[in-house]
Write a protein that binds this DNA or RNA. Structure first.
Length: 927
RNA sequence: GGGCUCGUAGAUCAGCGGUAGAUCAUCCCCCUGGCACGGGGAAGGCCCCGGGUUCAAAUCCCGGCGAGUCCA
C-alpha cells in the first residue's frame, strides 16, 4: 500500500529547476520554480494577485481565449473536435448534464471499448454544474455554465491487446510541458505558477492530478486517470484501494472563463466574460453608481477575492469585514452589492438556459427538463427582484446568439411558453396563500410549518412568497429553521421502496458462441435452417416453463428497441416447437419454446410472417412519424420512448406544450407524404465516431447502442441508430393513421398510430362506431355531430322542464288537491303523504308543504322505501330524528339537518304501515 | 421513475355524506344628459369519466383521464 508521491517526480520538474515544497499554511505538497516560496499559492494560503493587474500580456475576450487555447493545441498536433451537447443523457444514460470534457468520452472510450474521435484531441466543452447555483453572482468567480477547455490523450499499455487504441500518445511529462508552454506564450510569469499535488478520485477511477495555480487562481487541473478500484490494489486513496488499469488517459480541464478573467483582471469573472450583457442588465435595472460608489463596489470585489470565499455563506460572513475595511456601513455595502449580484446571476442563468435549450432540452417536470425549469424560474425571480424588465426570451437569446445556436426562434418560443406557465403557477399560488392567510387571520393563528411545507412541495410556492403575502394581511408565519429538511423528510418513505430490484439471474449460457443474426442480412426472409447448440429446461424462476433454445444462427428477432419478439416455429422431422418469446442475452439469442427440439438437431425455423410484418411496418412508421413530428413541431423533438405492436405503435416525444389537432393532422399528412414518396429504407453499419460526426447525436433516438459499430437506418431524409427490423421501401408501410395524442407527463407527448393493415383496421373500427351511432340517432353518418348536439341540447332543456313541472306538481299536491293525511301535531299541521316518485319529487313536495307552513312527511315506494321529512321554521321537531326512526322501520337508515332530512330502506312492504305510524312518531318527537 | 395536491357556473373558488353556492363576467330593469359607480332581477352546472361503499356520493374508496408541484 502506498500513496502516489512517486507519481509526481517528473523529469520535467527536475530539468527545469523546480522545487518540491510543502505549504506552510495548509501542508499540501506543491512544485515551484521559486526557491523562496513557502505557500501553495491557492486561497486561503495566498490571495488573488491579478485583479487590476492582469496576469497575461494581453486582455482576451471569451471567444479570443477559446481560440488561443484550441489553436495552441492544434499547433501541437491535437485535432480540434466539436463540443458535445450539454445534455449528456443524449449519449450516456448515467448522468443528465455534461459537467466536464471527459464526460464526452465516458464510458466507452475511457474503458478502451471504442476509439476516441481523434487522439490526441482538444475541445472546448460547454458544461453546466447545477450544484453551484447558489454561489453564482455572489462569490465573484462561480458560474453555473462554463466551458471546460481540454486536451486529452488516450493511452494503452504496451503489449496488452483488445483495446480500441494502443500504445502511448503522451503522458505526464508532455502534459505539464504543454501547460507551461501555453502559459509562457500568453505572457504569464512562470516563477509565480505553482503545481499542487492533488490526487483525483471519481466514479471508480483514480489517478495522480495536479492543480495549476497562478496568482491565486486555479487555472487548470491536470488529471492522469490510470487507476481503478480494486480491493487488492497497491494504492490507497480516500479510503479505497486502487490498482493500475490497462488504459490510461490524460484528462485536463482549463476553465475558459477563468483564463479570460485572469487576462483582464476585472473585479469579478462576470465582467470579463459577458461585459455587454452586464451593461445591458445594469442599465435596464436602473443601477447607477456615483464615482464614489463605483469605487466602493470595485474595492469590495477585490477584497472579496482575497478572502477564502467558497460559497454564498462565506460571502455573507465576509461582508462585515469588507465593510469595516472600506469604512462604509454594512447596510450600504449590501445595498450596493446585492443588485449587482443579481445581475451577474441573471447573465449566467441566461447563458445556462441558452446552452440547455439550444441543445434541445425541453422544460418539464422530469430529468434535464426539470433542471431547465428550475433555472428559468430562478432567473425570472432574480430579474423581477432587481427590476430587470426585459423579456427573458430576449436575455436568453442574447446569449444564444453569442454561442451561435441555430434554433434561436424555438428557444425564444420555449422561454415565452415557460415564463407564461410560471406566471400562472405564481398567480395560482398567490390566490391559494391569500385564502389560507385569511383563514388563519380569522382564527388569529400563525400559518403553521406544515402548511408551508405543503405549499412548497405540492404547489411550488416558496416560503418567502408566503411570508410576503401573509404579512400584508397581518398574519405570522412559523418559518422553521430547517425548512428544506422538513421537505426532504416528507420524501423519505418513498426512498425506502425504490430498492429491491431483481438481480440479473445467471443465465448459465456463458461460453456459447454469439448467435449469427440473419434478420439483419435479409429482413424479409421468414424461413431458415439452423443447428440447435443448447437446450435448457427453464427452471422454477420461470413459472411459464418451457425450454430455452440456442441456435447457431437465427431469423427470429429478439425483443428490443421497443419492438416485440418474433413468434413462430422450430421444426425437425419429428417435432415442431412453438417459439413463444425471443430474448437477446449478450450476443446469444435465446428462443423460448414449448417443447424440446433436441440438442444437436437441425431445425427448420419459420417466423410468424404476419406478426413480423406488422412489427416492421410499425417500426419504420415510428421513424417516419418521429421525422414528421420534428418537421411540424420543431428540431427539439426527441424520442422519449416507443413501443411497437401488431395493432398499433406509440412514440413519446419531448415537447413543451400539448399537440393541437391541427398539428396532429399536419404530422399525419407529412408522414404519409414520406410513405407515398416510397423512399428506400437502407441499413448501414458505421464506425460510431463517424456516424456521430456525419449525422450528429440525434441518431440516438431509440437509446444508446453498445459497441464500436452502430447500425444506421436511413428512411429517406431520416437517419437513426436502430437495431430493429424494417421494410425495404417506405411505401410498404402503407397508410399511417394517427389514432390519438396524450400528454404522458409534462414535457412529454405521446403519439399513437397504426400502419398498414392495422391502420386500415383502425379506420374501419372508427367507421363502424360512427355507423352504429348514426343508426341509433337514425340519421346518416355526416349528420351525426349536428344531430348529437341537438339531442344533447334538447335533453338538457327537457331536464329543466321536468324540474319545473315537478315543482308545479308538488305545489298542487301541497295545496291539498291530491290527498294525503293531515294531522295535528302539537298545534302544527302535519301532512303525511305517499308520492311514488324519485327523491327529487319527494323533496319538491316536502318543500312546497313547508312553504305553506306545514310539517311534511313524504314517502315513496318507487325505489325501495324512501322518506323526506321537512319541518317549518319554529316547530320543535327534529327532521333527522324522525327520518331515522321511519327509515329504521323499513330496514334502512337516514338523517340530515333538523329542518330537512331524508332516508330510506329496502323494505317497501312496510312503507304503508310506517307512514300510518308517522303521526305517532312525530308526537313522540315533540316530547 | 417516485411522492404530494387539485378537477364544481364563462373565470376564480366555497361546499367535503343529507335541498349545488359565492364573487367577477354576461343579459334585463332602475338611477344618470351620458359614462363610471350604485340598487334590483335573470340566465348560466353530465359537480372530469367509470366502478364500488351507503337508505343517500359533488363529498368516502378503487381505477382511468386531465392539470399542477416537489424530488431522483
Amino acid at each position: 500500500m502506498s500513496g502516489l508521491e512517486e507519481e509526481y517526480r517528473l523529469e520535467y520538474f527536475e530539468t527545469n529547476g523546480f522545487y518540491r515544497k510543502q505549504c506552510v499554511a495548509c501542508g499540501d505538497a506543491f512544485w515551484t520554480r521559486d526557491g523562496d516560496r513557502e505557500t501553495c499559492g491557492e486561497p486561503p494560503c495566498d490571495t488573488y494577485g491579478f485583479i487590476d493587474d492582469p496576469g497575461f500580456a494581453e486582455a482576451y475576450t471569451l471567444e479570443e481565449m477559446r481560440e488561443a487555447f484550441l489553436g495552441f493545441f492544434e499547433e501541437h498536433d491535437h485535432e480540434r473536435i466539436d463540443p458535445y451537447p450539454v445534455a449528456a443523457n443524449r449519449w450516456r444514460d448515467d448522468v443528465l448534464l455534461t459537467q466536464a470534457s471527459i464526460y464526452d468520452f465516458q464510458p466507452l472510450v475511457t474503458s478502451g471499448e471504442t476509439p476516441p474521435p481523434a487522439n490526441p484531441l482538444t475541445v472546448s466543452q460547454p458544461c453546466i454544474r447545477m450544484q453551484d447555483i447558489d454561489n453564482v453572482g455572489k462569490t465573484g468567480r462561480h458560474t453555473m455554465a462554463f466551458e471546460m477547455m481540454a486536451h486529452h490523450a488516450f493511452n494503452a499499455r504496451e503489449g496488452v491487446e483488445g483495446y480500441a487504441y494502443e500504445g502511448e500518445v503522451y503522458w505526464k511529462e508532455e502534459t505539464v510541458a504543454y501547460c507551461e508552454e501555453l502559459l509562457d506564450e500568453l505572457g504569464a510569469d512562470l516563477e509565480e505558477v505553482t503545481y499542487i499535488e492533488d490526487p483525483w478520485v471519481g466514479g471508480g477511477n483514480a489517478g495522480p492530478a495536479i492543480e495549476v495555480i497562478y496568482r491565486g487562481l486555479e487555472l487548470a487541473t491536470l488529471v492522469f486517470m490510470s487507476l481503478e478500484r480494486d480491493p487488492d490494489g497497491e494504492y490507497e486513496l480516500k479510503g479505497d484501494s486502487y490498482s493500475p488499469m490497462d488504459t490510461y488517459v490524460v484528462d485536463t480541464g482549463y476553465g475558459l472563463e477563468r483564463w479570460t478573467w485572469l487576462s483582464q483582471g476585472t473585479p469579478t469573472v462576470y465582467e470579463a466574460i459577458y461585459p455587454e450583457m452586464i451593461d445591458v442588465l445594469t442599465e435596464n435595472a436602473g443601477i447607477e453608481h456615483t464615482e464614489e460608489e463605483a469605487a466602493i463596489v470595485h474595492d469590495a470585489a477585490r477584497l472579496a477575492g482575497n478572502l477564502d470565499i467558497d460559497d454564498a455563506d462565506d460571502v455573507e460572513a465576509a461582508r462585515a469585514d469588507i465593510a469595516a475595511e472600506l469604512e462604509v456601513g454594512l447596510d450600504r455595502l449590501r445595498g450596493l452589492l446585492e443588485p449587482l449580484e443579481s445581475v451577474y446571476a441573471i447573465a449566467d442563468h441566461s447563458r445556462t438556459l441558452a446552452y440547455m435549450l439550444g441543445d434541445g432540452i425541453v422544460p418539464s417536470n422530469v430529468g434535464t427538463g426539470y433542471l431547465a425549469r428550475m433555472v428559468l424560474r430562478r432567473l425570472k425571480r432574480l430579474a423581477d427582484g432587481v427590476g430587470v424588465d426585459a423579456p427573458l426570451d430576449e436575455l436568453v437569446d442574447m446569449q444564444a446568439e453569442r454561442l451561435g445556436y441555430a434554433n434561436r426562434d424555438t428557444v425564444r418560443e420555449v422561454v415565452r411558453t415557460e415564463v407564461e406557465k410560471y406566471r400562472e403557477t405564481l398567480a395560482r399560488g398567490e390566490r391559494r396563500v391569500e385564502s389560507l392567510a385569511e383563514e388563519y387571520a380569522r382564527e388569529g393563528q400563525p400559518i403553521p410549518a406544515e402548511e408551508l411545507v405543503e405549499l412548497y412541495d405540492s404547489h411550488g410556492i416558496q416560503p418567502d412568497t408566503v411570508t410576503d403575502i401573509a404579512s400584508q394581511r397581518g398574519v405570522d408565519v412559523e418559518t422553521p429553521d430547517d425548512f428544506y429538511g422538513l421537505v426532504a423528510k416528507r420524501h423519505e418513505s418513498e426512498r425506502a421502496q425504490t430498492d429491491g430490484e431483481e438481480s440479473a439471474s445467471d443465465t448459465g449460457l456463458e461460453g456459447l458462441p454469439a448467435t449469427e443474426r440473419l434478420y439483419y442480412e435479409d429482413q424479409n426472409r421468414m424461413e431458415f435452417e439452423a443447428m440447435v447448440l443448447e437446450v435448457r429446461e427453464r427452471g422454477e424462476n420461470h413459472p411459464e416453463g418451457g425450454y430455452d433454445v440456442v441456435l447457431d444462427q437465427t431469423m427470429f428477432y429478439p425483443e428490443g428497441g421497443g419492438q416485440p419478439a418474433d413468434h413462430g416455429t422450430l421444426s425437425t422431422d419429428d417435432v415442431t416447437a412453438s417459439v413463444l418469446d425471443v430474448q437477446l442475452v449478450d450476443d446469444v439469442v435465446i428462443h423460448r419454446t414449448d417443447v424440446d427440439p433436441g440438442t444437436g438437431e437441425f431445425v427448420r425455423g419459420t417466423v410468424d410472417a404476419e406478426r413480423r410484418r406488422r412489427h416492421m411496418r410499425h417500426h419504420t412508421a415510428t421513424h417516419i412519424v418521429g421525422h414528421a413530428a420534428r418537421q411540424v413541431l420543431g428540431d427539439h423533438i426527441r424520442q422519449a420512448g416507443a413501443q411497437k405492436g401488431t395493432e398499433s405503435a406509440r412514440l413519446d416525444v419531448r415537447h413543451y406544450e400539448s399537440v393541437s389537432h391541427e398539428q396532429l393532422t399536419a404530422i399525419e399528412r407529412r408522414a404519409n407524404d414520406l410513405v407515398m414518396a416510397n423512399e428506400p429504407v437502407k441499413q448501414e453499419w458505421l464506425d460510431r465516431n463517424e456516424a456521430e460526426e456525419r449525422h450528429g447525436f440525434d441518431i440516438y433516438q431509440g437509446g444508446i447502442p453498445e459497441g464500436e459499430q452502430v447500425r444506421l437506418i436511413h428512411t429517406g431524409p431520416d437517419t437513426q441508430a436502430c437495431g430493429g427490423t424494417h421494410v425495404s421501401y417506405s411505401g410498404e408501410v402503407g397508410i399511417i393513421k394517427i389514432l390519438g395524442t396524450e400528454r404522458v407527463q409534462d414535457g412529454v407527448v405521446r403519439l399513437t398510430y397504426a400502419a398498414g393493415e392495422a391502420a386500415v383496421e383502425a379506420v374501419q373500427r372508427t367507421e363502424r362506431r360512427l355507423d352504429a351511432t348514426a343508426d341509433v340517432l337514425d340519421v346518416s353518418p355526416p349528420a351525426v355531430p349536428e344531430t348529437a348536439e341537438r339531442f344533447f341540447e334538447e335533453w338538457k332543456a327537457r331536464g329543466k322542464r321536468i324540474e319545473q313541472l315537478q315543482s308545479e306538481l308538488a305545489a298542487a299536491r301541497a295545496s291539498g288537491a291530491t290527498g294525503g293525511e293531515t294531522v295535528d301535531v302539537g298545534g302544527t299541521t302535519a301532512v303525511v303523504q305517499r308520492v311514488d316518485g324519485g327523491m327529487e319529487q319527494l323533496r319538491a313536495t316536502a318543500n312546497a308543504l313547508v312553504d305553506e307552513g306545514k310539517l311534511a312527511v313524504v314517502g315513496s315506494g318507487d325505489d325501495g322505501a324512501q322518506f323526506v321529512v321537512a319541518v317549518p321554521e319554529g316547530v320543535a321537531v327534529d327532521a333527522g330524528e324522525v327520518v331515522g326512526e321511519l327509515a329504521r322501520r323499513v330496514g334502512g337508515g337516514g338523517g340530515g339537518p333538523a329542518d330537512f332530512a331524508q332516508g330510506g330502506g329496502p323494505d317497501t312492504g312496510a312503507l304503508e304501515d310506517t307512514l300510518a305510524d308517522a303521526p305517532e312518531v312525530l308526537r313522540e318527537q315533540l316530547e
